[in-house]
Amino acid sequence: MSAPRTVYDASGLPTVIFGKRSLLWWGTLGFMVIEGFTLLLMAASYFYLRTNEFDWPPGRTPNPDLLIPTINTVLLVLVMVPMWFAGKAAKRMDRMAVARALLIATAMTIPVNVLRWYELLALNARWDAHAYASAAWGVVVLHSTLILVDVFETGTLGLMFLLGKARRKHYPDAADAADYQFFLSGVWVPLYFIVYWMPRLL
């Protein structure tokens, strides 16, 4: 005679979960750790190369301009506002509020990507001019690839919610997108000071 089986009723478990109980949340955290470490390595190389130069920027290279990079940094930080609302609305499962917040964030991030080209020009040196230029360009370009991909991801997710194509499982995606955007904006602030202000201080 076989032993009796233990049967559990899982019908009461939630079908949508947020935060640490979600596998996608851990995946997003993993992306942030990997990308954050890569950006840290780029910043470390910037300071390492500085130790081999008497002047920084070297030679007659002028210091980076501040106007466009500062404006763009402020814009990128402000994108956190609609993304915060998107995260809150996702947990309420308010479809139109999520769509509105994601699309506003996308509309704000598009000019950030455009102004990134002018941020590179504000470095006042070609990427291959010397070690300083290569390190500074490397930091800015690497972060730029992240926000470029993010604007497509956020925009696509926003359109899905707007058009009613999103399912219940996509609400945690919106909340995780908000967390990821906080990372993108937050990590740029120290990088902005390193690239555009540190040459004036080192």
Results as ranks from 00 to 15, higher is better:
38 T>G: 12
39 L>V: 13
40 L>I: 02
44 A>I: 09
44 A>S: 12
45 S>W: 10
45 S>Q: 10
45 S>R: 07
47 F>P: 03
47 F>V: 11
48 Y>H: 14
48 Y>N: 10
49 L>Q: 13
49 L>V: 12
49 L>T: 09
50 R>F: 12
51 T>M: 15
52 N>F: 14
53 E>H: 13
53 E>V: 06
53 E>C: 06
54 F>C: 00
55 D>F: 10
59 G>V: 11
60 R>P: 00
60 R>V: 06
60 R>Q: 12
62 P>C: 03
63 N>A: 12
63 N>E: 09
64 P>R: 07
68 I>A: 01
69 P>Y: 01
69 P>G: 05
70 T>M: 13
70 T>I: 03
71 I>E: 06
72 N>E: 12
73 T>M: 09
73 T>A: 11
74 V>Y: 01
76 L>P: 04
79 V>S: 08
79 V>M: 05
81 V>L: 15
84 W>E: 13
85 F>A: 11
86 A>K: 04
87 G>Y: 00
88 K>F: 00
90 A>S: 14
91 K>C: 02
92 R>Q: 15
93 M>G: 02
94 D>G: 05
94 D>H: 06
95 R>V: 10
95 R>L: 02
97 A>T: 11
97 A>M: 09
98 V>D: 02
98 V>F: 05
98 V>P: 03
98 V>S: 06
99 A>H: 07
101 A>M: 07
102 L>N: 07
102 L>K: 03
105 A>D: 03
105 A>P: 02
106 T>R: 03
106 T>K: 06
107 A>V: 12
108 M>I: 11
108 M>S: 07
108 M>N: 03
110 I>T: 14
111 P>T: 11
111 P>F: 09
112 V>H: 07
112 V>N: 07
114 V>N: 04
114 V>P: 06
115 L>Y: 08
123 L>V: 13
124 N>S: 11
125 A>V: 07
127 W>D: 15
128 D>A: 11
132 Y>R: 02
132 Y>S: 04
132 Y>F: 15
133 A>D: 08
133 A>H: 04
133 A>N: 04
134 S>F: 03
135 A>E: 07
135 A>R: 10
138 G>Q: 08
138 G>R: 06
139 V>Q: 03
139 V>D: 02
140 V>D: 06
140 V>T: 11
140 V>R: 01
141 V>C: 01
141 V>T: 08
142 L>K: 00
142 L>P: 00
143 H>S: 02
144 S>A: 14
145 T>P: 00
145 T>E: 04
145 T>N: 01
146 L>V: 10
148 L>A: 13
150 D>A: 14
152 F>D: 00
153 E>H: 09
154 T>Y: 05
155 G>Q: 02
157 L>V: 12
159 L>A: 09
161 F>Q: 04
162 L>A: 15
163 L>W: 12
164 G>I: 04
165 K>W: 14
165 K>G: 12
166 A>H: 08
166 A>R: 09
168 R>K: 13
170 H>W: 08
172 P>H: 09
172 P>Y: 10
174 A>T: 14
176 D>T: 09
177 A>T: 13
177 A>P: 01
